[in-house]
């Protein structure tokens, strides 16, 4: 860390960062959901992170679920690039930041993604407790924000107040004018204690560990994948909420005025048609093959080596949205059984 400060109120920090930036924070909708949303200027509501990550992660704020790539006016093709104002994401959990770091690598050469990413200051938030269903500690992650994955890190300290850790030069510059006091030295010990607490709450997660081993050894029989495939409705829920999923499909539209617009939209590798070719040949024709490949993408050795991390950050969102009960825990339990 570059520095550690004592912070009297996260709201004051947020108001400071809002100068010259659009602020996005997770807010409750009154119907049981939480969503990332733009705060109105002068919003002074208390900073209250949700009890678990919101169903939709920060992914669409960078990899838009629908955006134009190019336009054709009959003679020429014009690229469409988004114009992005500076913004701050306030209160991102460690798992979602880890996913973002994964996407940063994957979309390194994607100008649409990187334009948004370059303009965004990331304020992370350390979790002091495990959320229900979370298993970050079982997949090489942590409830504590990795300092290479955020600009600033907010955490509740043991004295009922707040500590602000400075993780990047951009973070340091953003708060310089606040002249915050130094934090007491015990913040590292408190972080260690939080990690131990979350580890204890999440437990051994033996099925996750065993499932990863089975996938990496390619030892799961086709019939087991096919049995899982029977429970896959192809709804696209898991791939939509997974913060590291990144597949997309083209969509051709005719705009009012006649120009043709080529957009990209989120896709899902669990759809039957995902790999189906025009000739109707389909290398992944069965649901079991597709479920298998999804989990290989998350835990396979080749991907883990390429990204230096698993494609699963342990957020548990797939367990929540899967109508067939074959999210991470459902699948890993079934493939790790003898």
């Amino acid at each position: 860390m570059l520095a550690a400060h004592k912070l009297d109120s996260p709201e004051r920090l947020r108001a400071h960062l809002a100068q010259g930036r659009e602020v996005q924070e997770m807010r409750a909708d009154g119907q049981g959901g939480w969503h990332w949303q733009n705060l109105a200027a002068g919003d002074g509501l208390p900073f209250e992170p949700p009890p678990r990550p919101p169903l939709t992660s920060a992914k669409p704020l960078f990899f838009a679920e629908r955006e134009a790539l190019f336009r054709f006016d009959g003679g020429t093709f014009y690229g469409c690039l988004p114009e992005i104002e500076p913004k701050v994401l306030f209160g991102v959990s460690a798992c979602d930041l880890r996913a973002l770091a994964y996407q940063d690598q994957f979309f390194a050469q994607d100008e649409h993604y990187q334009r948004r990413r370059r303009q965004t200051l990331l304020v992370g938030y350390d979790c002091g407790h495990s959320c229900a269903g979370g298993f970050c500690t079982a997949v090489g992650g942590s409830p504590l924000v990795n300092q290479t994955q955020a600009d600033l890190i907010l955490r509740r300290n043991g004295h009922g107040g707040w500590t602000l850790l400075v993780a990047s030069q951009a973070g340091a510059e953003a708060i310089a004018a606040l002249a915050l006091p130094q934090a007491p030295e015990d913040w590292t010990a408190e972080r260690d204690a939080d990690l131990a607490q979350v580890r204890a709450e999440q437990g051994a997660q033996a099925e996750i560990t065993a499932g990863i081993a089975a996938i990496q050894a390619a030892s799961v029989e086709p019939e087991r994948w096919e049995a899982l495939g029977l429970r896959c409705l192809g709804c696209s829920g898991c791939t939509s909420v997974c913060p590291t999923c990144s597949c997309y499909a083209p969509l051709e539209q005719r705009e009012e005025g006649g120009a043709l617009l080529h957009e990209r939209v989120w896709d899902s590798c669990l759809y039957t048609g995902f790999q189906k070719e025009a000739s109707s040949h389909n290398p992944a024709a069965t649901a079991g093959q597709r479920v298998q490949r999804f989990w290989y993408h998350k835990f396979g050795t080749a991907f883990a080596e390429r990204f230096g991390a698993y494609g699963c950050v342990g957020c548990g969102r797939c367990d929540v949205v899967c109508p067939g009960s074959i999210g991470a825990h459902g699948v890993m339990t079934r493939i790790s059984r003898p």
């Binding site: 030892s219 086709p222 490949r293 050795t301």
Partner: peptide, 16 residues
């Protein structure tokens, strides 16, 4: 294909 544990559609259909 081996590292990924991929199996062919023909193999899959036998288990459907």
């Amino acid at each position: 294909t081996r590292a990924a544990g991929l199996y062919s559609t023909a193999q899959a259909i036998r288990h459907c």
